Amino acid sequence: MATSSNAETGSSTADAGGAPASASLQRAPLRSRSDIMTSDLLRQLPDKEFISLKAGTDDFAALWRPANVGEPRGVIILLPGEGESADWPRGIGPLRRGLPDHGWHTLSLSLPDWPGPALPAVANTSEGAAEPPVEDPAAETEQFAENPVPSEAGYLPEETAAIPSELVSDDTKTEETVAPAAPHADQITERIEAALAFACSKQPAAIVFLGQGTGGYWAARYLQQRAPGDVRQLVVVRPRQPEGQDEPLEQLIPALKLATGDFYYKHGRGDLAAARERLNASRRMQHPAYRQVGLPKPTGDRHADQKQLVRRVRGWLAG
């Protein structure tokens, strides 16, 4: 009896503070930010809009919308910026939903997370939620240029992906060792290649890359390195150079000798200066088909502002 009691006591002690029990209670590794946003989109959007693509050994989700015309003009592959989902409510989402009405298939990607410190979490959203007070709309826009993960309170659930706050909680850290992944740039290249292969399988009349924020940089970088003959046009919306990339954006985009639409906002000092550098570089390189399109200051009516962006992009594609 004593032996049995001692054994039970020892077992309880091990469970309470021993290494085996501690190991069994270790938390699982965090899911990536992009995986969490994709899961949110899976709950919000119809299943028919999702396709699964393979990049190297990994599967990832993309959003596909066929053109709403009998004779489609081609496929537009959309690359969101850092911290943005494949249906981001500013730019990417409205473009992927609006351009099919003007003859374009759209394929919107999710890109892998930047392997640096976690970005701030975005509060969960619901219909009717009040937007946080903004003292100066211009200052808010300038902040968005530096931080592509704004609070989207007030956006409809089907228009934005919620990012749980526990994504950046200190309590969710794990001590487990994770096998090193492929370099971030290589992961993005693999995803673009998978998207391009899918687009080519549709035998489109034309393929266009459209990148927003840092997505514009990655689109231009891929075109520079791989020079795929199937891609005839590049659209960049408020392009931004990712952290850790040495090649200047103002040199990368104008060096591409294919039709390029460069969309920027006229009212932001940083946007204007960067756009001027890209324009001057295109002139020095004698780019044959580089055109900048200045967008006016947002009105505060997000639906009207996004419709205007879709209209401007559609107009450039038609021209």
Rank of each mutant, 00 (worst) to 15 (best):
K266H: 10
E193R: 15
R221N: 09
F209Q: 08
V208M: 09
Q212S: 10
Y264A: 11
G211H: 08
A181W: 01
D186G: 00
Q225G: 00
A185G: 00
R240T: 03
G270D: 07
F198E: 05
G244R: 08
P248A: 14
Q245H: 07
F198C: 05
R269K: 14
Q224C: 01
D230K: 13
R221E: 11
T260V: 09
R232H: 07
P239N: 09
H267K: 05
R226Q: 14
A205E: 12
L223M: 11
E193H: 06
G270I: 06
I207T: 08
A194I: 02
Q224F: 12
A220Q: 05
Q245C: 03
R191E: 01
H267F: 14
P254R: 14
A220P: 00
Q212A: 14
I192T: 04
L210Q: 10
T189F: 12
R226S: 09
I207V: 11
G213W: 13
D246R: 14
V237G: 05
D186W: 04
G211P: 00
L210P: 00
A206H: 03
A255L: 02
L256D: 01
K202I: 01
W218I: 02
P204H: 13
S201H: 07
Q212N: 07
P183F: 15
E247T: 11
H267N: 13
R238D: 04
I253G: 03
A199D: 00
R232F: 02
P248F: 14
Y265H: 11
G211D: 07
E250S: 14
L196R: 13
Q245F: 11
G216S: 11
D262G: 01
A259R: 15
Y265F: 12
A194T: 00
F198S: 05
T260C: 08
K257V: 02
R269P: 00
E193G: 05
A227K: 12
T214Q: 11
I253S: 06
L196S: 05
Q251M: 08
P183C: 12
Q212P: 00
L210V: 01
R240V: 07
G270W: 08
A182S: 13
A197H: 03
Q225S: 12
T189N: 08
P242F: 15
D262N: 13
R226W: 03
P248W: 13
A205D: 10
L234H: 04
P228I: 10
Y222G: 04
R191F: 10
P204V: 07
R232E: 11
D271K: 01
T189M: 13
G216T: 06
Y222L: 05
F263W: 03
D262I: 02
R232Q: 14
D271M: 07
T189C: 06
T214G: 08
A206M: 06
E247A: 12
H184W: 15
A194V: 04
P183M: 14
P228C: 13
K266R: 15
A220N: 04
T260N: 06
G211Q: 10
F263D: 04
D262Q: 08
S201E: 05
G261L: 09
